[in-house]
Structure formats: structure tokens, C-alpha cells
Simulated scan of single mutants.
Amino acid sequence: MHIGLIGASGRLGTLVCENLVQQKLTFTKIAREDLQNIPSFMQLLQHVSESMIILDISLPVGTENICNIINNLEEKNLKQIKGLVIGTTGHNDRQKQLLLSTSQKIPICMVSNFSKGVYLFEEILKAKTSQGLTVTELARALGFDMAMTEIHHTLKKDAPSGTAITLAEAGKIPAKQISSVRVGKVVGDHSIHLSADSESLEIKHTAHARKLFAEGAIELCKNIYTQAPKPGFLRKEDFFIS
């Protein structure tokens, strides 16, 4: 497996590169200039002898650029790309439509957070209880109100975070019930608050080190590469476990 990495110069990208070196995995840094046109990208592909899975952890414009490239590749070159894993969030409607068309050519997996703990958090919210209701449905039936708080470092641009939006969707929590805080160097805290008249509960996930996202991203790429799914939008739930 060879990983083509978009966003290698970012904070997460730097950690992904370090982890790839530690695991002795081959990879290529795909720079902004490589995505400007087909000839530039083809020149990069010619230096990669094996099949590639692309990991995009850049910005929405980076996702747009790689999708435009993929949609214009010839079939023989397209076969070299086994999938596109996207950890970027904040795509607009036009970019989402572009992703949809690109998924007809290669498998695409969009992940708002590469943490296994966040994945488990989401599954807890959607899990069925003995009543046949999901955890969040049961909470509301028991009279609990629900809200979310998410805290990240001051350099994080989007608010609420993609992870908060994903968890809120799992718990059917409206956007107005999400509070975002940007402070210090916090890696990432996500909490669901359940409150009734005389009692309250809190479900919380805390990321202690940014490297967990790098490790999770690489493992997800490995799983998708190994399982070799057909083109289309992939459910991330199918690839967190190898």
C-alpha cells in the first residue's frame, strides 16, 4: 500500500508523516501544485510504482482539487487509485455534489474524526436499549433535555467542529444546542449533557494527544485498501475494525 497525502504540512499531516515513517509505509506528499492540472498530477503518479490510497486532511479546496483531477483521469490511471479517505470538513453544497460524482469512479470515505473513541461515542448514542429505543430516544422519553459542548484549541477554524456535528446528528441534537469554545491548546473535548429536573448525566470524550488521529487515519486507510471496496460512498463504520 502506498499513501498519497494531501495536507502533509498541516499539524495533523506532520504527525501522519511521522507515523508513516515509524510504520515503514511508503507515501507521497501531494502538494497544492500537484493538483493544479492533470499533467502535474500524472508526473507525480509516474513516480509511484504501486497502487495508492489518497488521504486528504487539507481544506475543502484541496478536496475539490483532487476530485476534479480524479474525474478527469483516464481509466488506466484511475485503476492505480484504490480509494479516497477524507478527514477534511466544512465542504459547501457544490463540493458535496462534486464528491458524489467522484464516488462513482472510486470509493470515498468521509470521516469527521479518526478517533476510535469518538466512533464508539457515536455508536453509544445510536445503540438500541431494552425498550427498543436508541439511547437518545430513551433519554428524551425519560424527560431528559440534551445539549452538546465542544472545546478545541484557539487555532481551530470551524465551529462547531465536524465531530460535534456528527455526534449531534447521532443524538438528534439541534444546532442551536451545540456550544463551541476555542481556548488554549485543547486537542478536543466533546460532551453530551443530559439534564432533567432533579438529575443530570454527561457523556464525554477527551482526546489527550493529537497523534491518535494520525494513527486512526492510517489504520482506516489500511483497512479500506485491504478490503478493496467498489466505488461509492463508504460507511466509515465498516472500516474502523479490520
Rank of each mutant, 00 (worst) to 15 (best):
E123S: 11
G83F: 05
N92V: 07
S103N: 12
Q95L: 07
F121Y: 15
A139V: 08
L194K: 12
L167G: 11
F114W: 01
A168H: 05
T166F: 10
H153C: 11
I151N: 01
P107F: 06
S191K: 13
G184N: 12
M110W: 00
N68D: 09
A175W: 10
K76A: 15
E122L: 05
A170W: 02
A170H: 07
V135Q: 07
T166R: 15
C67G: 01
A159G: 02
V135L: 11
V183N: 04
G171A: 15
L99H: 04
I124T: 06
A170K: 10
S179W: 01
H152A: 00
L120C: 02
T89S: 15
Y119R: 15
V135E: 04
L133Q: 13
K116G: 06
M148T: 07
K96S: 06
I124S: 04
L99K: 09
S103Y: 05
T149C: 00
K76W: 13
V118T: 11
L125Y: 09
D93M: 07
S195D: 12
I165P: 05
I86C: 11
M148E: 02
G90P: 12
S200Y: 11
K176F: 07
D93L: 03
T154Y: 07
K76F: 13
P160K: 02
S103I: 08
E123P: 02
M146G: 04
E137Y: 08
K172V: 05
F121I: 10
D189H: 15
F114A: 13
K157R: 12
L120W: 07
N68W: 02
A147P: 01
E122W: 05
G90H: 13
A175G: 06
T63Q: 06
V135K: 09
E74S: 10
G83W: 06
A159Y: 02
T102Y: 00
Q104F: 08
M146L: 15
S161D: 13
K157P: 08
L167T: 09
K185Q: 14
G143W: 05
L59A: 15
G62F: 08
L194D: 14
V183I: 13
E75F: 09
G117Q: 04
I106Q: 05
V85E: 00
S103P: 08
E150P: 00
A159V: 06
N68G: 01
L84W: 03
K76E: 15
L100P: 01
S112Y: 00
G184H: 13
V111W: 03
I81Q: 09
C67V: 00
A175L: 15
K128N: 08
E150C: 08
T129N: 12
L120E: 11
I178L: 12
G132C: 07
G62C: 01
I57R: 02
C67N: 00
I178C: 06
G90A: 09
I108K: 06
S198C: 14
E169W: 05
Q80P: 09
G90Y: 11
G132V: 10
K105C: 04
P160V: 00
E64F: 03
